[in-house]
Each structure stands twice: as C-alpha cells, then as structure tokens.
Design a protein around this nucleic acid. Structure first.
Length: 113
DNA sequence: ACGTTGACCTATA
DNA sequence: GTATAGGCCAACG
C-alpha cells in the first residue's frame, strides 16, 4: 500500500477515544497536497488494513456521520462513538466543537497541559 | 484513454 | 445562515 494511505491511517489512529476529526484536517495535516476526498477513500478501504483504524472517529467538517453508511452495520459508527463517550444525534456529533481533534494542532504543537 | 462518481472543503452571492 | 459553483485526487465503468 502507498505510504499515503498509511499516513492517513497513522493520523486516524492518533485520534484519541472520545474525540473526532475531519477528513480535511487529516488531509491538511499531511500537506494539503491531496484532497480530503482521497482521505475518505483511504478510510473506505481501511477495513482491510492490518491495525484497527478508528474510521468512526472521522467525520466531515460539519460533524455529520456521512460515512456511517459504509459501516456494517450502518449504526456501528454511531454506537462506537457513543461507546467511547462521543454523543451522537441525528447522525451528527454532539458538541462537535468540543470533541473536535485537529492533528495539525494537536500533533504539531502539543499544549503542555 | 475518457467520463462519471465519491466517507470533502472552500469561495462567492 | 442558506444556496450555488469550483477544485482536488483516486477508483470504477
């Protein structure tokens, strides 16, 4: 698999439980060289990746579980998030701004507390 | 090789 | 805030 995909999974796995990030955030973190669409595709094939990729922790910039339709069962994505503490209503993350996790800000310059 | 589609984001009115 | 248009890259037909 291309290093690009691995990078996407790397960042996705970096997302802590109880938090969520957006495709664009991952794309931008990698270097905006690619589009957020490709990130989604990488996550689409994540079901075949070796380590477990918490793709359910990735939502669009609106916090909507647009990718839930690709989970089996479809409700697994929401159940997984809720199981981690992320409340979900109407296929949308509750308090998205609070649980929002940005790799380019969390990984680049981790606040010392 | 060409055209269409897709787990998206950004800019403009 | 809502609605419309463009860009980006990869995979499928």
């Amino acid at each position: 698999m291309n290093d690009f995909y691995e990078s996407v999974y790397e960042v996705t796995r970096q997302v802590p439980p109880g938090r969520v990030t957006s495709y664009g955030a991952i794309a931008r973190y990698l270097g905006t060289g690619m589009s957020a669409r490709v990130v989604g595709w990488a996550l689409n094939v994540c079901h075949d990746r070796e380590p477990y990729v918490p793709a359910h922790r990735v939502v669009n910039r609106n916090g909507l579980l647009t990718g839930k339709v690709h989970f089996r069962p479809v409700s697994s994505m929401q159940e997984l998030l809720e199981s981690e503490g992320v409340k979900v209503e109407e296929d949308a993350v509750v308090n998205f701004l609070a649980v929002f996790w940005d790799p380019m800000t969390e990984l680049n310059n981790q606040s010392p507390g």
